[in-house]
Computed example of a mutant assay.
Amino acid sequence: MQSPPGGHPPDLRTPVGESTVELPDVAPRLRDLRRRRGLTLEAAAQRAGLSPAHLSRLETGRRQPSLPMLLSLARIYGTTIGELLGELSPERDPIIRSGSREPSVADGWTYHQVGTPGRAMQPLRLVVPYGAQGELVRVHPGEEWLYVLDGRLRLTLGEALHELGPGDSAHYESLTPHRIAAATREGAEMLFVHTLLQSPDLYPHV
């Protein structure tokens, strides 16, 4: 979830509808992380493929970030979604018990953290309702793997369109433009793993 803006073309990672779910702690954390990285609002927005105005709305809480935006900003700031949400686990317990973490919701997607924050590989269990973020196109370094648990999923990789059902999986380079959406009105549930790649300057999107 796209080409860097050159005069700010349409932002493919920006969902059409506003999220109604509150993530109150994310906004100030996004601002603090940007400042700690020594990035201006304009520089960070350019690296994320957003307009400065849109990033400003995310940092002030006037707009809620979607999951693709959180993934992108986490990579740029050299952190993880868990840390963006304040889910720090200094002891790095390798066991995550069922029900030990509350799920988070952003722009229609429900995602459960099923891994330990701060690691290069980030696993999630995602619930994707029909129509949510269906037009978001993502391009970023790394790899992604997904496994459909329930429902049917539509995965676009470059120009190829694939429909996956329960038991189907996909493993692909995430520099390939890709889009994930539920294929049926019942939605879909999947396991999702992506790598958090950090370049030496912490700006892998450039």
Rank of each mutant, 00 (worst) to 15 (best):
L124M: 14
T156N: 02
L157H: 05
P10K: 01
E135W: 03
L202S: 10
Q2N: 13
D201F: 07
P166I: 11
P177K: 03
T176F: 00
P5I: 04
E102Q: 15
P177L: 02
V193K: 01
P129H: 07
R13A: 13
G78W: 00
T195R: 06
G17E: 13
E163T: 14
L23A: 06
E102P: 08
T156I: 08
E83I: 09
P90T: 10
D107E: 13
R92V: 11
F192A: 08
L164D: 05
P15M: 03
Q64T: 15
L30K: 00
E22M: 08
Q64F: 00
D93R: 15
A132F: 00
L153C: 07
T80G: 10
I96S: 11
P24F: 06
P15E: 04
T110S: 14
Q46C: 04
S66N: 06
L73K: 01
S174T: 15
T79V: 07
Q122W: 00
E102T: 15
H162Q: 08
L73H: 02
I76C: 04
L196V: 12
R152N: 10
S174C: 13
S56R: 11
P117L: 05
M190T: 03
E22T: 11
V114I: 15
L126I: 15
R97S: 11
S66H: 04
R63S: 14
E18T: 10
P68A: 10
E144S: 10
A44V: 03
H140F: 08
W109S: 01
G158E: 07
R34I: 05
H54I: 03
L197C: 08
Q46S: 12
V114F: 05
A188P: 01
E59S: 03
P166A: 12
S169D: 10
P103D: 13
V16N: 02
E159I: 02
A188K: 05
G115I: 09
G134V: 01
G158N: 02
G6E: 13
P9V: 03
L41K: 00
A48T: 10
S169N: 11
T116M: 07
E22A: 15
E42V: 13
Q133H: 08
I180P: 01
D150W: 06
L23S: 04
T79M: 07
P65Q: 06
L136N: 01
G108V: 01
Y172K: 11
P94N: 09
Y172V: 06
V139N: 07
P24W: 05
V16M: 03
E87W: 02
E159S: 08
S19Q: 07
G86C: 12
P103N: 13
G151A: 12
T14S: 12
R57S: 13
G118H: 05
R13E: 12
H178S: 07
P10M: 12
P10C: 00
G118D: 07
I180N: 01
V105M: 12
P5H: 07
M1V: 06
E186C: 05
R97I: 08
G86Y: 06
A182I: 07
D11Q: 14
H140M: 14
Q46I: 03
I95G: 01
T80I: 04
E143S: 12
S56K: 07
L197E: 14
H54G: 00
R125D: 11
E186D: 15
W145E: 06
I180C: 02
G134A: 11
R29P: 01
